[in-house]
């Protein structure tokens, strides 16, 4: 029966303090909208930079006299290394075609023989795309028979890695500030909401309600408030993404619907933020109530 009381008082509390409740839902929604947009903006930004990064990390040029067996051996060595997500072989003819496509000249018409070497292009996964690992790989390859040269686009690689690192730090700092301001903003609103219920809290304390019985309906209210705020924030983000795509402004590679973990995270964050915020506000008020 106490559960009935808690549920009923929670619902009645919302009905009786409709305005402060709606304002709090709105503030949680705005706060979580900022968090959600922040997460998706960072994710999309990283995806964009990731796309911008070269299709491959390094190119292994072979000597002109490399035999089919040498090439097979080199291929086996490359694929035998962990962290290789892609390996492409470019024959001398492929290299000539690329040269033609890039410079508009047919290399065979300029020279009698095709001087361009055949090569392997190698791409690493994110876990292994770091300077020390790649350098170790280069050293191995340079010692392999029939390998002429290994070209690692170090400058571009390091620049992109640097940019990514800065973005990670900036994004983490921005998200942290957003979350912090979200917590303060929401806590303040919840405190105002609880303040409007001072009379009720005082009355039930005097009538012999335990702390649990005072707090429980508010905890429920807070949970509902947080859920509504988070759900509305998610809907707003979804609407925004759809609108951006519909009006051909930008087609985002990362969307909230593709990331249920972001939706679940927002809901959990919203519910915890609001219910704990409400509890804290009630606990603080109980210090001043009989």
């Amino acid at each position: 029966m106490k559960l009935n009381y808690i549920i009923r008082e929670g619902v009645i509390g919302i009905r009786r303090a409709r305005m402060p409740f709606m304002i709090s839902v709105f503030s949680v929604m705005i706060a979580l909208l900022m968090v959600g947009i922040g997460i998706l903006a960072v994710d999309n930004g990283l995806q964009y930079i990731g796309n911008f990064q070269a299709d491959y990390d390094l190119e292994i040029f072979l000597e002109n006299g490399a035999t089919l067996g040498d090439k097979q051996e080199i291929s086996d060595i490359i694929t035998g290394n962990p962290g290789i997500i892609r390996m492409d072989y470019l024959s001398k003819e492929d290299a000539a075609a690329l040269y033609n496509a890039e410079f508009g000249e047919d290399v065979l018409s300029l020279l009698d023989d095709n001087p361009l070497p055949s090569s392997f292009r190698v791409t690493f996964d994110d876990e292994h795309r770091n300077g020390s690992y790649i350098q170790l790989f280069i050293n191995t390859m340079e010692m392999t028979r029939s390998v002429d040269e290994v070209i690692f686009k170090k400058d571009l690689f390091e620049r992109i890695q640097g940019i990514l690192k800065s973005i990670y730090i900036a994004a983490a700092a921005a998200l942290f500030s957003i979350i912090l301001s979200t917590v303060f903003l929401t806590a303040n609103n919840l405190r105002l909401m609880i303040l409007s219920r001072y009379e009720f809290i005082e009355a039930v304390r005097l009538l012999g309600a335990s702390d649990f019985m005072v707090k429980a309906p508010f905890f429920l209210e807070g949970g509902l408030l947080g859920f509504l705020g988070a759900a509305l924030a998610t809907l707003c983000i979804f609407g925004l993404e759809t609108a951006l795509a519909y009006f051909n402004i930008i087609d985002l590679p990362v969307r909230i619907v593709n990331h249920p973990e972001v939706i679940v995270g927002l809901l959990i964050f919203g519910i915890s933020l609001a219910s704990l915020g409400v509890l804290k506000a009630v606990r603080r008020m109980l210090r001043f109530v009989a």
Binding site: N4, Y5, R16, E199, A203, V204, L207, G208, A209
Partner: peptide, 23 residues
């Protein structure tokens, strides 16, 4: 010290509800 946001029935019933008595 009656609660103005609920009727007299609810005001009187409140202490019993806090104690978990059946409706």
């Amino acid at each position: 010290k009656l609660l103005a946001d609920r009727d007299n029935y609810c005001n009187i019933a409140l202490p019993l509800e806090i104690q978990g008595m059946k409706a």
